[in-house]
């Protein structure tokens, strides 16, 4: 065999081997499921699905807390999520058991929490959607001490519960739900 032919075979072999190595390296570098739906890893979708759920629903909470459920569901605050004030379901329940204590606001903190939604000074919120109050004018008009916190008159889960009961007893006005 001539020197020329040998050279040709060597070049051809190198090319074939290099291509082969190229394909192997490419297969190694491209992750599984890449390109199944597009230029991305389709498995990333399933990985996102498997992210742990941290917020439950009000039904999840009220299933055990039946005493609160009876009050909360009847009141005007029934659309408020338990977890907004009390922390997430995941932090409270693991493997079906209660763990940790949940933060519950006390004293002046509670008024701050209430005014987060009910402060009439924030004009951007529609009066048709939420009933707002001005402080301390509301306390003055109701003739209570200015140090009163909201939850001394308003039940946090059903804000009109005591108010309506008082109205019923005194017969001042028709009770509203």
């Amino acid at each position: 065999m001539s020197n020329y032919a040998l050279r040709l075979i060597a070049v051809a072999t190198t090319l074939v081997v290099a291509t082969g190595i190229g394909f192997v390296v490419k297969a190694q570098l491209i992750p599984d499921s890449f390109g199944k739906y597009g230029h991305y890893r389709a498995n990333a979708i399933d990985e996102e699905v498997q992210r742990p759920i941290r917020h439950g629903t009000n039904t999840s909470c009220l299933k055990c807390h039946t005493y609160e459920a009876a009050i909360h569901l009847k009141g005007r605050h029934n659309t408020i999520s338990c977890e907004f004030c009390h922390g997430t379901y995941a932090d409270h329940v693991s493997n079906g058991k209660k763990s940790g204590t949940l933060p519950v606001k006390k004293n002046t903190e509670i008024s701050t929490l209430c005014l987060r939604c009910h402060n009439t000074e924030i004009k951007a919120r529609s009066q048709a959607v939420i009933k707002t109050v001005a402080m301390p004018q509301h306390l003055e008009s109701q003739e209570v001490k200015l140090t009163h916190t909201c939850n001394q008159c308003h039940h946090v889960h059903a804000p009109l519960k005591y108010i309506n009961r008082a109205k019923q007893i005194t017969g001042l006005t028709e009770a509203e739900s």
């Binding site: 917020h55 408020i80 907004f84 987060r116 924030i122 529609s126 959607v129």
Partner: peptide, 12 residues
């Protein structure tokens, strides 16, 4: 028209 800016969504 219904957003009251309570920030519940942001906290959640």
């Amino acid at each position: 028209t219904r957003c009251i800016g309570c920030g519940s969504c942001c906290v959640a």
